[in-house]
Measured scan of single mutants.
Amino acid sequence: MQRVNMIMAESPGLITICLLGYLLSAECTVFLDHENANKILNRPKRYNSGKLEEFVQGNLERECMEEKCSFEEAREVFENTERTTEFWKQYVDGDQCESNPCLNGGSCKDDINSYECWCPFGFEGKNCELDVTCNIKNGRCEQFCKNSADNKVVCSCTEGYRLAENQKSCEPAVPFPCGRVSVSQTSKLTRAETVFPDVDYVNSTEAETILDNITQSTQSFNDFTRVVGGEDAKPGQFPWQVVLNGKVDAFCGGSIVNEKWIVTAAHCVETGVKITVVAGEHNIEETEHTEQKRNVIRIIPHHNYNAAINKYNHDIALLELDEPLVLNSYVTPICIADKEYTNIFLKFGSGYVSGWGRVFHKGRSALVLQYLRVPLVDRATCLRSTKFTIYNNMFCAGFHEGGRDSCQGDSGGPHVTEVEGTSFLTGIISWGEECAMKGKYGIYTKVSRYVNWIKEKTKLT
């Protein structure tokens, strides 16, 4: 034993070699072989497995989906700052455009905790909710729209109204504003409101030439003092309507412009014939205590009207009353817009006519005020429907199939267009061939041609 100890002390290297040989010859039971080890760690190889990531292109799944990435790591994937920024906006807080917040056709661009709407022409605001041009839906104005110097929408209202708090709607500024039905039992019968379409306001006024200088022999019209197929109006439903009495009662109609003036057809009036105007009328054979009678003290036909040349060209006249009318729910003026808007309103496509005229061709006159909704007829169809001249200051309205029309005794009465609950004068009943005849239409004086003249002559002093 002493000898062994001496050998170990003198030859430590020998001992180490012996131990190493023993270990190498022993069977290893701690580690699995290569094949079995792979069965336990069965993990798919990654895209760049075996390579240094710093030297390969980034992978979106590896960089940002398996674990949260930084902007720089995302930049490695896209290799483009702009594309990385677009991805980053949604990656950080989701897609803010998912709810489609942009209105009126706006395009949404996502941002971090926010979004941006790219608005089409005519709109602005956070969600493109603000109209900035009158060309689109009248700028959301209830009545009139004008573009300011910086191309912003400025709404306005006709006389007797003021802008509401929203700067879009119009509200009454006087007790009985024009064009409004205020009798409670008839307010439910107000005709369907007309909503502004998209309009090209630059070209809204037709490029028409008034044929002022045409000389033409007097034409022989049949029954051209021209509501057939209409309905009984309720008291106060058309408070701007008046009836004219002269040699015979209810020979023509008219509309209240203001307390002192009536507008009617020029062919209705004769110099030297006494005319009485009755406002607030409903049943011409009954006294309903809503009527107001006034005498006409002055007749002003349009300066281009000449019955000797043509009885229905420039067929418009103004009547001055001896005493002002007292405005109330049964006696209310009709609204008159400017030339541009009167023309736009007419193009809405349908209007209402009213009167006490004959209820059928050569038949009896109506006792109760009649009204009828009539569609506008395109000019080409209008011209083809008659052998008589249709001037540019006239328009056609009615039904091709016949059966409904204005008729004798309705002449001078109103053709009105309702705009968001307020009625505007767009025409004056003038003439036609018979009444409600198939293929024939009622012919009306186009008020847009005469609004400046009306307003100039009827100013209240």
Rank of each mutant, 00 (worst) to 15 (best):
C28R: 02
N147S: 08
T287F: 09
G230E: 11
G403F: 10
V92N: 10
K152V: 09
A207Y: 11
K260I: 04
Q57K: 09
I309A: 12
A9Y: 12
T290R: 10
A436W: 08
P175K: 12
P172C: 03
N313S: 10
G58P: 15
R294G: 01
T458S: 11
E79Y: 11
A266R: 03
S187H: 07
E288D: 10
S406H: 12
V278R: 07
Y161V: 01
E116S: 13
T158S: 07
D212S: 09
F144G: 01
F121G: 15
G58F: 05
G357M: 13
D315C: 01
C382Q: 02
S448V: 03
K45P: 14
V277E: 00
K247S: 10
L23H: 03
N283G: 07
R162P: 01
Y341W: 05
K152R: 12
V153L: 05
H361K: 13
L60W: 06
N38D: 15
S350H: 14
S169D: 08
Q2G: 15
L103K: 08
P301R: 11
F424Q: 00
V269F: 04
G106S: 03
S11T: 11
G253C: 10
A279W: 00
Q408T: 15
C157G: 00
G403L: 10
R180Y: 06
D249G: 10
A9W: 14
E401A: 15
E323C: 05
D93H: 06
K446G: 08
H289N: 14
C108V: 01
A173P: 00
P324Y: 04
R384I: 07
E142P: 02
F123G: 02
P333S: 05
V248T: 11
T84R: 07
T218E: 13
K188F: 10
P120I: 06
S107D: 11
A26G: 12
T85A: 07
A164T: 10
C435L: 03
V228R: 12
I210F: 09
E27G: 09
G363M: 08
I454C: 01
I15N: 03
N203Y: 09
C134D: 02
E420Q: 08
W356F: 12
L130H: 11
N295D: 12
C97S: 01
N283C: 06
L19T: 05
L376N: 04
V377I: 14
A173D: 11
D322I: 02
A308L: 11
L60A: 15
Q143G: 00
S423F: 14
L319Q: 01
V228I: 13
D378L: 04
E434D: 14
C97T: 01
C407N: 04
G125P: 01
T209A: 11
K188M: 10
N295R: 12
V195H: 13
A207D: 08
M8V: 07
I112A: 08
L211V: 12
C117Q: 01
F176T: 07
A337G: 06
H303F: 07
A164G: 10
N36D: 13
A366D: 13
F121L: 13
N151V: 10
Q143R: 00
R379H: 11
W240N: 00
T158E: 04
H282Y: 13
E27S: 14
G402P: 09
W356H: 08
A192V: 10
K387Y: 06
T190F: 07
F224K: 13
T276P: 01
K387A: 12
Y47V: 14
H267R: 06
G427T: 01
C28W: 01
G363W: 05
G236T: 05
V30A: 12
V153P: 11
F221D: 13
S204C: 05
P175R: 11
K89I: 06
G236W: 05
Q237D: 06
Q237H: 08
F395S: 02
D249W: 04
G94N: 09
N310F: 04
K247A: 13
H302G: 02
S220D: 13
E129R: 01
S411A: 11
V263F: 01
N310R: 06
E401N: 10
N203T: 13
L24V: 09
H400G: 14
I136N: 14
K109S: 06
V56P: 15
V243T: 10
E67L: 04
D95Q: 05
D33M: 11
N151D: 09
L376S: 04
P235Y: 07
D249L: 08
D223C: 05
L369R: 15
V77E: 07
A173S: 11
A397I: 02
T85G: 13
V277K: 00
F221V: 07
F196S: 12
F196Q: 09
Y305C: 00
C170D: 00
N5Q: 11
L23S: 03
P44C: 03
G253D: 04
V195A: 14
N48K: 10
T445C: 03
E401R: 15
R3P: 09
D338I: 03
R83T: 15
Y330L: 05
V273P: 10
A192G: 13
K293V: 13
T389N: 15
E193N: 12
V419D: 00
G351K: 01
N203K: 11
P44L: 11
E53Q: 07
V242M: 00
E73C: 03
I390T: 09
I428R: 00
W431T: 09
E418C: 07
T133H: 05
G94H: 09
L163I: 08
D249C: 03
V331H: 01
T276Y: 05
Y371K: 13
R75D: 15
K260V: 04
V263Q: 02
A233W: 08
C18Q: 04
K39W: 13
